[in-house]
Amino acid sequence: MSKIKYFVQQSWLLIVSSFCFGLLLAIANAAWSPIIEQNRINKLNVLAGRLIPKAKDFVPLEELGVEIKVKLLKGEKKKVDVYKAVTGDECFGWTFNAVGPGFQDKIELIIAVDKDFKTIAGFDVLASNESPGTGDKIKEEDFRTQFKAKPAAKLEVIKSGEARDNKILAISGATISSEAVVKIINHYVKEVKEEMQRKGLIGNDKEQ
């Protein structure tokens, strides 16, 4: 009995303040988490809208009753957020989120392709932690526009020369970051395409 008394004597402040602080955090979280979630969706819509400007809405595939699962670069299988870019009933393409290892930290991308998965419409960086000045340039227009209208097949990184066909010119001084981006795009485009063909979303005429 005296042990419990001693315990309470010593730690009552800790216990009480833990409860108080916990309550404080719960309130803050409850108040702000809808805003945080909305921020995320807004960012996604703005980015996706920039990649496929013709489309007005981006419908998550879950709403169509389909779930796309692909193998990640690390090996495990995971659900990918795929969005159908539509205006009214017309489909203009697809966007999906991708993630993979970068130079310092993981890189999260949003990739857009046309409706048949034939060409890439572009990509944007959702989150990355590449070195400023070099690797950080994967976010910049100069690098990203190269991917526009590239075939949705295996892309290749080159260090110099012209970025024709399936070639992507690496950012000077940031070859590793450039290669990481291309690797993520190659992997996801291929995997998502195969999975969607299997589900019958593209490749046969259901959606067109």
Partner: peptide, 13 residues
């Protein structure tokens, strides 16, 4: 710190 972090996430994403 957690409160500050949440605040930044909500208003300065």
């Amino acid at each position: 710190v957690t409160i500050a972090d949440l605040f930044l996430k909500a208003f300065q994403p």
